[in-house]
Amino acid sequence: MPIRFEEKTARFEGACTIDEAIPLTEWLCSVAEPRLDLGGCTALHTALLQVLLAAGRPVAVPPEDTFLKGWVMPVLGKR
């Protein structure tokens, strides 16, 4: 399970695929103060990135992955 949805935290682990797009969207809509932990995320599908960008929630734990950290985080941080 690449994304584990806990009560207030979504933990991204490994390669997160498009299959997670709908669950992630629903979860983000239902949780008041969602906490995003991308620490273990090694790959993020474009669709998930879109959901995160649209949600505009801060990322609590940035990903370790160089590509995500270097190029994707700055965009997520801006929102």
Partner: peptide, 15 residues
Amino acid sequence: AWPPLTNLDPYRCTL
């Protein structure tokens, strides 16, 4: 521009 999350179609790429 991003629509409200509830209206977002995650399967449509707009990036």
